[in-house]
Design a binder for these strands. Structure first.
Lengths: 253, 253
DNA sequence: CCTCATTTGTGCGTATGTATC
DNA sequence: TGATACATACGCACAAATGAG
């Protein structure tokens, strides 16, 4: 892991034009970006350590950090304390259709899907949720907060709401079964389909950024959808928040 | 908590909890953000200088700069060398209910029913366009730049590309007919369908913001789609950019 | 469970360049 | 032209997270 594979010149110094208009950290940013663009640094690969980059470009570590902060803000790399800096994966194509399932999308991309339940509890429907589920405001609903990952990279946050008299045991079912589809099945819903999907975008809040391991201020695609049972009765309202850097919404015709 | 502040007020010191988990620059960020949120710092107002803030929070100027960089990245303030740092004119909250509904079906979004032609010309395909249309990079294409409006409010910008040997007269046809569908019909394409739509988001550039009459940095939903003729041959690549504040993408299943 | 080396995160002090007024 | 204020860069030191052993 400490060994960083860099094709070609490893020990030599990459020249930076000093004192001539272009800041050193910008030149370093361009250099690393070019490495990524040319495939010399591939998604998932670890960059040299900050100290190594400082040696390579003959600058102070702070200058390297300024550059990495820029690349991180643009979503090209991700830095974790104690581990290092890694090239981000290309955005995952995320098809939206009547019957899309997260795990199918991820495995289609050749990556391993996983999910984690952040929280599950009963609450009261706010106006948006009530409207989507055809309930009156303040009706009891079950709520599941999840984070979904592909190859250990968080892709999206999700809030799912279910009308409560009907889906009383759903939270427990989800805890034991692990997927919404199976939990719904346990609640007597063998099949369902997507009725409508609304897409918008906004910047990630600090908490969301932390949960998704994103640089603060990065953009989220919000995908609100309503699922209905075979009779057309709304059974689930979901709000998913995808990192723009890690997923791309694809609508299939 | 925070003293009444005005530029130049550097006499009092705002306490920062040191060595207790939360980084000083984060606390300063929160403090300034709270000042903006509470109206103590209003849009257009100048913040104290970095040196003054350093005194106020009893930290090094670098620490203040780290905080201002964060606020700047989030779009709350704007810093100009030699002038100072100013509170941005942007609203802090992103209203969720105040958006104009854009109830057009995405599957029919390729039809430019109403809008204005900004520009129409022949050019060479860049890699993205070439890939989408199944051409080699640098192939000649026709390009239409449009803006769509609802009640005189610009909603979206669009760039449409057509392979050129085949659609030589398309620009003129569009000028006289006014819609892409009719222009394609005049070029011998009676029918076409959407193959794929990809949705992402990014901040608006200055030029885009001007065309859409938006504040720079506001978010755009980008919708890339490929249309194919009945034989499955790509005939059109469209990139539409919707203002998140004025449109919401709705996908119906 | 703990230790330890590695790596990134934070913060200070200093110096100098550059844009604005 | 000078004073002010932000931009860049270096060197040092220590904190905190990670992962290997």
């Amino acid at each position: 892991m400490t060994e960083t594979m860099r094709p070609g010149d490893d020990s030599s110094v990459t020249e930076i034009a000093r004192g001539r208009g272009i800041a050193a950290w910008r030149q370093i940013t361009d250099e690393i970006e070019a490495d990524i663009g040319a495939g010399r640094l591939r998604p998932g690969m670890q960059l040299p350590t900050e100290a190594q980059l400082a040696v390579r470009f003959a600058v102070n570590r702070h200058t390297v950090r300024r550059s990495l902060a820029e690349l991180s803000a643009r979503g090209l790399v991700r830095t974790t304390q104690g581990r290092g800096t890694f090239v981000e994966e290309r955005p995952l194509a995320y098809p939206i259709g009547a019957r899309t399932r997260f795990s199918e999308n991820v495995s289609r991309a050749g990556r391993e899907a996983s999910g984690k339940l952040l929280d599950g509890y009963e609450t009261l429907a706010d106006p948006v949720v009530a409207q989507a589920l055809g309930l009156t405001e303040g009706s009891p609903v079950a709520r599941l907060d999840t984070v979904r990952m592909a190859d250990d990279t968080p892709i999206s946050l999700g809030n799912a709401y279910f009308p409560l008299p009907r889906f009383a045991g759903l939270i427990e079912a989800y805890r034991s079964l692990g997927t919404v589809t199976q939990a719904l099945e346990a609640c007597g819903i063998p099949d369902y389909r997507r009725l409508e999907t609304r897409i918008s975008a906004r910047p990630a809040g600090t908490e969301e950024a932390a949960k998704l391991d994103l640089a603060p201020g990065r953009l989220l695609l919000t995908v609100d959808s309503i699922n209905v049972d075979p009779d057309g009765v709304p059974i689930q309202f979901t709000r998913a928040m995808f990192s723009v850097d890690r997923a791309e919404i694809v609508v299939e015709s």
